[in-house]
Design a protein around this nucleic acid. Structure first.
Lengths: 258, 258
DNA sequence: GAGTGGTCTAGACCACGTC
DNA sequence: ACGTGGTCTAGACCACTCA
């Protein structure tokens, strides 16, 4: 009765099976959180081998539609409650003297509990960063790596690169939280950032990122790169932020020049 | 000699195999465009069954690292030449009287050949769009769907929604290209957009998008949503653009309020 | 302990690309 | 014609979850 599946079709059986299940998910017949039929049930329903059934289910998982667990079953992914990374284009309060950095303030305002760990090191930056910072061959940077968590769950991974030629003698190279923000420190030494260049790419996470950020199968990441320029148009900072796409919407507010 | 693979490890064999190949790709030992060993070769090298080898190779494909083809082999994905979607924050020339729209001008400037097809219809918008446009239950919108191609290759899919209450009598509901841009038409009838709200998400493409935009396995899409507000802060347009992430970097230039 | 998904093997036939 | 990946089957053992 439930068989629009044609074993003689040119479309692979496992694709037809995936199509069938996918359309039930999109149509709402299978709602977020609902359990799919077990693999054994699908084998019987569609007269297919277990490997074929698993190919179809793997397909859906790679599209980010389902999750599964040993001993549990396959489930329609619950549409996660989304956080915002509000990227402010205007910065009315960027000199504000708050006790917390902007991100902490944002997250707290959403009623969540933020936390972060910071590591500092001196590194030769990757090629693309070196190019964005307009560095000479061999120049080094201070790297501040930040793993942010919300309500105890890993949330985003951020790497900020600063040319050593600029920050060598500042607290930016110290492995402490800078409450007023590294940007404020840059401003104090005469490198206030007056202009940003943002580039956003999307890709599948690396295995390291999958581990560090607990990213499920079929979930891509945003890679948000921000280059900050001072008043002399010198790039003074490159921040690379990796954001799991099931937990983040990147938002910009833009006012047209009046 | 090439066996850091341990069949008794708790880590699944196919994962170890994938790790091995992945690290060769990241290290550069297998360069973009290079062919991987054939499945039969990998079976022998790692003393694994073909299904296991294919599981590992499927893993890499889902990470966007490799592509394969029947009768050809598995290859490291060539890092595609990237296009830009330059999203202008400032619009110095948005009233400019060019003969082409902004996108056509951009692409031509990059030495590529742009083309687009446009379809127009009157629809009840999806729920999220209705909410962004602050519509009442049952209100309809004009929908202009645009499939853009560059050098003959599908490139992006864009859906612009306009409240019918505003555009019913304008050429926006006509199925023709509007050379001076739909935004210009809105301005002419007193709904110049003075403010934008952009929201960017990333996800795996739907099968329809995969077909329409020729998206390979393991490649996510950006979904870029722009809401335009007029001087009275009324939302007059929602544009949803789907961009395959292997062909697009989204770029913003931001000047701090002076 | 029963049922679930996770992993793996061995073998088969087919469709496509290249030569 | 041959070698490649694409699809599919049948069966096995294991690890985990849940009642």
């Amino acid at each position: 009765m439930d068989v629009p599946i044609d074993p003689h079709s040119s479309r692979a059986l496992y694709r037809q099976l995936a199509d069938e299940l996918r359309s039930k998910i999109y149509s709402g017949e299978l709602k977020p959180g609902a359990q799919l039929p077990t693999e054994r049930e699908l084998m019987e329903q569609f007269d297919a081998s277990r490997n074929t059934v698993r190919l179809a289910l793997g397909q859906l998982a790679n599209e980010g539609l389902t999750v599964s667990g040993r001993g549990r079953g396959h489930f329609v992914r619950a549409s996660a409650p989304l956080l915002f990374l509000a990227t402010r284009s205007e910065s009315p309060d960027r000199r504000a003297n708050t006790a917390n950095d902007a991100w902490t303030t944002d997250v707290t305002a959403q009623g969540r509990t933020p936390a972060q760990t910071i590591e500092v090191s001196i590194v030769r930056p990757p090629q693309n960063v070196a190019s964005l910072l307009e560095l000479e061959e061999g120049e080094t940077t201070a790297l501040r790596t930040r793993l942010r968590t919300v309500d105890g769950e890993a949330n985003s991974l951020s790497m900020s690169y600063f040319p050593m030629s600029i920050v060598a003698t500042t607290e930016i190279v110290q492995p402490d939280d800078i409450v007023r923000g590294a940007n404020r420190v840059l401003a104090e030494i005469g490198h206030d950032q007056v202009r940003y260049l943002d580039q956003i790419t999307a890709r599948m996470p690396t295995p390291d990122e999958r581990d560090a950020l607990r990213i499920g199968a079929g979930i891509p990441v945003h890679e948000h790169v921000r280059v900050g320029y001072d008043a002399d148009d010198v790039p003074v900072r490159v921040a690379v932020t990796v954001l799991p796409a099931d937990r983040h919407i990147i938002q910009y507010e833009l006012a047209n020049a009046q």
